[in-house]
Simulated assay, not measured.
Amino acid sequence: MRFDVITLFPELFEPFLRHGINRRAFESGQVAVHLWNPRDFAEGNYRRVDDRPFGGGPGMVMMAEPLWQCLQAIRAARAEPDGARAPVVLFSPIGAPLNHKGVEDWSRGQGAVLVCGRYEGIDQRFIDSCVDQQLSLGDFVLSGGEIPAMALLDAVARLQPGVLTDEGSHQQDSFNPALDGLLDSPHHTRPEVWQGPEGPMPVPEVLLGGHHERIARYRREQSLAITASRRPDLLALAKDRGLLDAADQAFLRSKGLL
């Protein structure tokens, strides 16, 4: 799949694409990333891409024309027929929240054109005529769309076959359908007893016994308890969907969580 990223700061992506386990997806071309700077498509000696907002107000607004010319070049480079154009995605506070289901959908698709806004935003006329979808990481504002774009690329890359060392790793991620959309359970590693700031802290004994069914049940119960505590909305959703079996419900009732 191919992602074309429109950004005034393409250099921010270079270390991201070269480091970490997900670089396998980028280096292999499983997730091809092409960076485009709208300043290259701006007119004049100063290659201006922003101007003051009509009606007054603080800050500057990204101009529609350089973005449009950049998008035209991307369309030509992708050699897309009209009926198979990749969607144009803008990262924006008004966008739909990006979640696991959305990431899974993107990981199976054709890619997209990702628009990273800056300053006070983008001329609304470009949004109205060119943007197909808006996405948000949450109810907060960032300086630009580069971090959300990296977040989407990272989440999509790790779902590609062969990227993670253990093919089943992402199946145990929080929000994954394999966990019924619940949060993941805690993890432990060596040493068996850690001399922490509050004294000796042993690994839960059940994890040391090698009894796979007991370990699976323990992890399920930890997942249920953490989800009930931190994200009760996810637990309620799993219950409504009939994903909690009798043992799950008995455990939750015993802890006063259901």
Rank of each mutant, 00 (worst) to 15 (best):
H212I: 06
Q124I: 03
W194Y: 14
H34R: 13
F251Y: 15
D233M: 09
G256E: 14
A236V: 04
P93D: 05
L152N: 01
H34D: 10
H19S: 14
E120L: 11
G57T: 01
Q134D: 02
D233Q: 08
R241H: 09
A76V: 09
S143L: 09
R75S: 08
A73S: 09
C116I: 03
E192W: 07
I215M: 08
A64F: 03
W36P: 00
M201Y: 09
G242E: 04
G102I: 13
L208C: 06
L137W: 03
F175P: 00
L179Y: 05
A246W: 02
G168R: 12
R18V: 05
D184G: 12
L142S: 06
A84Q: 12
L152Y: 03
Q249S: 09
F91N: 01
D50T: 08
Q195I: 10
D173V: 10
D40S: 08
C70R: 00
W36Q: 01
P161G: 06
H187S: 15
G55D: 06
G138Q: 13
M60A: 03
G242A: 09
I127T: 06
I226T: 10
E11M: 06
E43L: 11
A84F: 04
F26L: 07
Q110E: 11
G196W: 14
F16W: 05
L135S: 00
R78G: 08
I127H: 00
H212Y: 05
P202T: 12
G102R: 01
L142M: 13
L153I: 07
A73H: 04
C130M: 11
M150P: 04
I21L: 15
Q30K: 14
D50M: 06
A73R: 02
G83N: 15
M62Q: 03
Q110D: 12
Q30S: 15
S143D: 07
L114E: 00
H212T: 13
L12C: 05
L8E: 10
R190Q: 05
D245W: 03
G256W: 10
K101N: 06
E167D: 15
E14V: 04
Y218Q: 12
F3S: 00
Q124S: 12
A84K: 10
